[in-house]
Every structure is written in C-alpha cells, then in structure tokens.
Amino acid sequence: MSRKKTKTYAYNYEQYEEQGKGPKDIIGDILADKDFTDLTELVIGCWGNPWEENCQEVINGIVANADRFSHIEKLFLGDMDFEECEVSWIMQGDYSLLWASMPQLKELTIKGSMDLELGEIRHEGLESLTIICGGLPKSVMKSIQKADLPNLKKLLLYIGIEDYGFDGDEGAVKELLEKSDFPNLDYLGIVDSEMQDELTKIVLASKYAGQVSVLDLSLGTLTDKGGALLLEKIPTYPNIKKLDIHYHYLSKEMTDKLEGLPIEVDASDANEEDAYDGEIYRYAMLTE
C-alpha cells in the first residue's frame, strides 16, 4: 500500500456546537482513523472553538502517544482560514515537550501566537520552522534565538504588528539574527511587518544574508527605501538565488529594477498606500 502523504483533521463550528467536539477529542479521532498510519504529514485545522480553547490538549495528546505518531515527519497545527477563526484569535499552546517526543519531525508549522510558547528548543532533525501569526511575541523570538537546531534549513517568521501580539521592535529581530546559530539555514523569511524597510536593512546586514539561497521579505510594507537597499546589496551576495517580496508598496520603477536583478524575483501583488487627513497608511498583509 502506498503511503498517503497528508490529511487534515478539523472540526467545524456545527460539530463543536451540536456534538461537543473540541481539542479534547481530536487525538482520539486521529488515532481511530484507518488512514492515519499511512500518513507522513499531519495537518490539524480548526478544533471547533479555537478562540475559546487553546490546543494544549492536542499537543499533550501527541506527546502522550509519541510512539503512535512516530511516522509523522511534517506537522501543521492551526491550519484554518479567517472564516473559521481570525489568526489573531487562534489560541495556541506550549510546545516545550513536543521537541523530544517527535525526534523524526522535519517540518513544523504553527498558525496563531496567542498563548504560544516554544520553550527550550532542541531538535537534531528539524529542517523547517514556520510561524504564521498577526504578531510574534518576544518570548517566542527568544526561544528561537536560543534554539539548538543544527539542521534547520528554513525559518519563516510572520512578525505582524503590536495590536495583535508583536511586543518587540526591530532590535529584537536584529538580536535574533545575531545570536541564533543555524549553520545549515538556506531559506530566511522575515515577513508581514509594518516596518519592512527597517527589517530589510537588518536582514541584509545579518550573517544569514551571506548564507541563504532564498530571502523572503514579503507580505509587509516594503517601499522604495527598502527596495533601494535590496538593489544595492543583493548583487554582493552571490549565494542568494531567489528574492521574494510579493505584497509590497514599491513603485513601478523600483519593481522593474528589482525584477532586472540576475536572480529569481517575485515582486507580484503591488499595493497602493492610503492617505487620510494628511497621514500615509500602509498595512502588513496578515494582522487580525
């Protein structure tokens, strides 16, 4: 029998309201599913009431049944769209015990940052860590900064904004990049920020700029100020083969110049700034 790659387990609001389904039930339903043993990727979506209950029971259930989850190499916890739950309302959990219980795990994606704790991160095999949120807490950044992930190849962090969980500043991102140690990192994404120009400067001055082949600065408020920095610095980093800046506030002229770089450039989804009462407003893609 060929192994199925992925399957999503989730409850909709009707299942929550009418059947009482919630995070306490999802692990049992997964383990009872005849398809489960053939999976390598597990996606857990809405657990019925993610704005009222966090997913700690889901995490705890995986840890408690670690032997039965030993074939899962990719885990996505919180895969839901805004109609199910706004990203800023998703209540996450504490992943401290997950690292040791899933030594086979290669990819972890987390959506939502409310109640999110990563604890002390030590994992020999993890190759990809993605956190999708409307605001990334400093405590989470600190855990990543101190993480022991010798084989991490991809790090993608949605920075977000203060109103929805980001309680740091550009200095916190700079410290993360300076003090972390990911010798095999090949993809760096610092995205979805209202200070994307400032973060672009920090990323381009970091040690990882001379290491990665993919640089992702998308989904934020990148303007011609940041674009000019990219135009100047990218040619000095021959290791960078792809630049992702889709969803931006660049002028057509700057976009054309960046797309003329001798690398793969995604500069799609241009946005226009709003002007109101003499003020200019630009917005990151994912916040609330």
Rank of each mutant, 00 (worst) to 15 (best):
M1Q: 11
S2H: 14
R3K: 15
K4W: 13
Y13P: 03
Y13D: 12
Q15G: 07
E17I: 14
E18T: 09
E18V: 10
G20E: 07
K21V: 07
P23C: 10
K24C: 07
G28I: 07
D29C: 12
D29S: 09
D38C: 09
L39M: 06
T40A: 07
E41C: 10
L42K: 04
E52V: 09
E52A: 14
E52I: 08
C55D: 08
I59Q: 01
G61D: 04
I62S: 00
I62A: 05
N65L: 06
A66E: 10
R68G: 06
F69L: 06
I72T: 01
K74L: 12
K74C: 12
G78A: 08
G78L: 07
G78Q: 07
D79G: 11
M80R: 00
D81Q: 15
F82W: 15
E83P: 10
E83Q: 15
E84H: 09
E86G: 14
V87W: 00
S88R: 07
D94S: 05
Y95K: 03
W99F: 10
A100I: 11
M102F: 09
K111Q: 15
G112Y: 05
G112Q: 06
S113D: 03
D115N: 15
G119A: 12
R122M: 10
L126D: 01
E127I: 02
E127C: 08
E127G: 08
S128P: 05
C133Y: 01
G135D: 03
L136E: 04
V140I: 06
M141R: 00
K142D: 11
K142M: 09
K146D: 14
A147S: 06
D148I: 10
L149I: 05
I159W: 03
G168N: 06
E170M: 12
V173N: 01
V173D: 02
E175D: 14
L177N: 01
L177A: 00
D181A: 12
N184E: 15
D186T: 09
L188E: 00
L188F: 07
S193R: 02
S193P: 01
M195I: 11
I202L: 08
V203R: 04
L204K: 01
A205P: 02
A209G: 06
V212W: 00
S213R: 15
V214I: 14
V214G: 02
V214H: 07
D216F: 11
L217T: 03
L219V: 02
T221L: 10
L222Y: 06
L222W: 07
D224F: 11
K225D: 15
L230W: 05
L230D: 01
I234S: 02
I234T: 04
T236S: 15
P238R: 09
I240C: 08
L243E: 03
D244Y: 12
H246W: 11
Y249C: 03
Y249P: 00
Y249V: 00
L250M: 04
E253M: 07
M254W: 07
T255G: 12
K257P: 02
L258H: 06
I263H: 00
I263L: 07
I263R: 04
E264I: 13
A267Q: 02
A267G: 08
S268K: 13
A270V: 08
E272W: 09
E273H: 10
Y276L: 15
G278N: 05
M285Y: 13
L286V: 14
L286I: 11
L286P: 03
L286W: 13
E288M: 11
